[in-house]
Design a protein around this nucleic acid. Sequence first.
DNA 1: GCAATGACTGGTA
DNA 2: TTACCAGCCATTG
Length: 114
Amino acid sequence: MSDPNPFAERVLDLVERIPPGRVMAYGDIAEALQEGGPRQVGRVMALFGGGVPWWRVVRADGSLPDSHAVRAPAHYRAEGTPLRSGGERVDMGSARWIPDPDEVPGGDEPPPTP
DNA sequence: GCAATGACTGGTA
DNA sequence: TTACCAGCCATTG
């Protein structure tokens, strides 16, 4: 796979819809799309995350992946994202953003079942 | 077909 | 707070 899939398109589209000052966890994205899992979302971000606000995607506990620990805090401070101690973690209690089904690409449509 | 890997998660110590 | 463990799921060799 070196080209975007329907799942990747949905992940990227959803990440682009995350409003400034908010974040989502990998598992949240997978759950919102009702498809795949956190690891699959992480793979999509690793491959195609370069074209979306990847810094708005964090771990479930608000900590940042090593790959993001360098640049993400700068974006958070610029967007006013609620941060926890040290500014290296996101306050999930306030910054966690869950999209409405209408905001999710194909959210109100069930996943393809063989 | 099997084992290892990974931008993960949740629980327990 | 950090550390370790077991589970999960698609991709890769």
